[in-house]
């Protein structure tokens, strides 16, 4: 084993990875948004303040549009170098240039205030818009893929430049009473891969090389409005049966009944 590398404020990289699991951010009087509790060490004078801090009102107006996540994010302010890490997962930084990227909310560690954070209309995902750098964690290295592609829901980290994400179910899973019964009961065996996310269009899809998810950050509930996905009951009386609190998956009894014409 080679001699261990010892870092000091001079040799620590600026806005780059220290190793695959640790990222170093240099602050020069500026600000960074970071997820609560991801800072592991810092040199210099850096203050951490909750999003609710009054002084940040202007900053928030331009770059934080997710009131539901406010309690999970803090603003680091000051000058010095700070190290970020998350549960010994791989961390990587990405540059956006006047672009957009949507990412699973638990995977985003930190971002520059030149980016604007918005909540994606896909529940549990966040969208970053603008120019700047952000840091994301993934369990295992990230793989970049071009659409059209179908991915496993658990392996999806995020996507950039607007491919259109949609659900895809394997054909056999959808057809016939037997198919429904099989997925309902597990009898006859299921591969566990009948359901995928499908991406078409131009852009990039980011995957992690494991199906173990990062713990979901509490993303709060989306406002109860008609037309908001996951936002609860639709318009009353619109004829959508079973659109209650839990979304009805194909293969559940509702579908069987419909197949029997009930």
């Amino acid at each position: 084993m080679s001699a261990p590398v010892i870092f000091d404020p001079m040799t620590l990289p600026s806005d780059d990875n220290v190793n695959a699991y640790t990222f170093c951010v240099e602050l020069k009087g500026g600000e960074w948004f970071l997820q609560k509790g991801k800072m592991i060490a810092y040199y210099g004078r850096i203050e951490f303040n909750g999003i609710g801090h009054g002084r940040f009102e202007r900053l928030l107006r331009t770059s934080f549009h997710s009131p539901l996540h406010a309690s999970d994010w803090v603003v680091a302010q000051g000058s010095g170098k700070m190290l970020l890490a998350d549960r010994a997962f791989d961390v990587n930084s990405y540059d956006l240039e006047d672009g957009n990227l949507t990412i699973r909310s638990g995977n985003l560690l930190a971002y520059q205030p030149t980016l604007a954070l918005k909540q994606s209309i896909v529940p549990g995902f966040l969208t970053l818009i603008g120019t700047g750098k952000f840091v994301a964690a993934s369990n295992g290295p990230v793989v970049f893929m071009e659409p059209p592609i179908r991915v496993d829901p658990q392996a999806l980290v995020g996507w950039a430049d607007c491919p259109s994400p949609c659900h895809h179910y394997d054909h056999g899973y959808m057809t016939g009473v037997l198919g429904g019964l099989r997925s309902l009961t597990g009898l006859g065996g299921t591969s566990g891969e009948e359901h995928q996310f499908e991406f078409v269009g131009a852009g990039t899809v980011l995957l992690q090389s494991t199906e173990m998810l990062m713990a979901e950050q509490a993303t709060g509930a989306v406002p109860h409005e008609p037309g908001v996905p996951g936002g609860g009951a639709g318009v009353p009386g619109s004829g959508h049966a079973g659109q209650g609190a839990a979304p009805r998956l194909p293969g559940q009894l509702g579908d069987l009944q419909r197949r029997f014409g009930l």
Binding site: F7, P9, A41, Y43, A85
Partner: peptide, 22 residues
């Protein structure tokens, strides 16, 4: 350590603050 450790030098000019959990 959980993940490779980062070794940080502390000198009188450069004090270091560390998260107790890390």
């Amino acid at each position: 350590s959980d993940g490779p450790a980062v070794i940080l030098r502390v000198t009188p000019q450069y004090p270091l603050s560390v998260d107790p959990g890390a």
